[in-house]
Simulated scan of single mutants.
Amino acid sequence: MNLMNLKIYRNVYGYTQEDLAKVLGVTKTSYANKETGRRKITLTEAKTMADLFDVSIEELFFSHEVHIKNTQSRKVCSNL
């Protein structure tokens, strides 16, 4: 599982860890632990995040490439 993609998508789309925690209905600490691999991400959480970023679960967690749909976001992504 490639959790770096999750962080990249979160940053590119301008979300904080707190924002994603609210979307998932968990605490910020719980979300931070998921993003760093200290806690497991459920299938439901993975689907929710993939839908938020308009990508598949496979793209979000298993791809070696990040596919950003708009040009401005690509510029932000290249600066990470």
Rank of each mutant, 00 (worst) to 15 (best):
K28V: 00
D51V: 08
F62D: 07
L43Y: 14
N11D: 10
A21N: 06
S78D: 15
G37M: 04
K75S: 13
S63P: 05
Q17Y: 02
V55L: 10
V12L: 04
C77Y: 15
V55W: 06
L20T: 02
V26Y: 02
N70C: 12
S73T: 04
E59A: 12
N5K: 06
K47D: 09
I68H: 05
F61L: 10
R10H: 09
S63Q: 07
G14C: 06
E35H: 01
M49N: 05
I41W: 02
V12W: 03
K75F: 15
I68Q: 04
T27K: 00
D51G: 10
Y31P: 01
H64I: 12
Y15A: 05
I68K: 02
R10F: 04
K40G: 08
K28Y: 00
C77T: 08
C77D: 09
M1Q: 12
L20P: 02
L3T: 04
V76W: 06
I68M: 07
L80T: 09
N79M: 15
N5W: 04
D19K: 03
S78L: 14
S63I: 08
H64N: 15
I41K: 01
V12D: 04
I57L: 06
R38Q: 11
G37P: 02
L20K: 03
K69M: 11
K7V: 04
K75W: 11
K7M: 07
T29S: 10
Q72F: 13
L43C: 07
Y31F: 11
F53G: 09
E65A: 09
T16K: 13
S73K: 09
G25Y: 07
S78H: 10
A21L: 06
A32G: 05
H64Y: 13
E59F: 06
R10K: 13
T44Y: 15
I68A: 08
T16C: 08
L3I: 07
I41L: 14
A21D: 02
T71K: 13
Y13H: 15
R74Y: 11
T36F: 01
N33S: 10
K47Q: 14
L6N: 02
A46R: 04
N11G: 14
Q17K: 04
L20G: 02
S30G: 00
H67D: 14
S63N: 13
T42Q: 12
S73N: 14
I57N: 04
V12M: 05
Q17T: 02
T36H: 03
I8L: 10
T16A: 07
A21S: 07
N33R: 12
V26W: 01
K40E: 11
F53N: 07
D51C: 08
V26A: 00
N5D: 05
L52T: 11
L20W: 05
L6Y: 01
D19M: 04
Q17S: 05
T16V: 09
F53M: 06
L52P: 13
N5S: 06
Y9F: 12
R38W: 03
Q72C: 00
S30A: 15
L3D: 03
K40Q: 14
Y13W: 08
V23E: 13
I8T: 06
D51W: 10
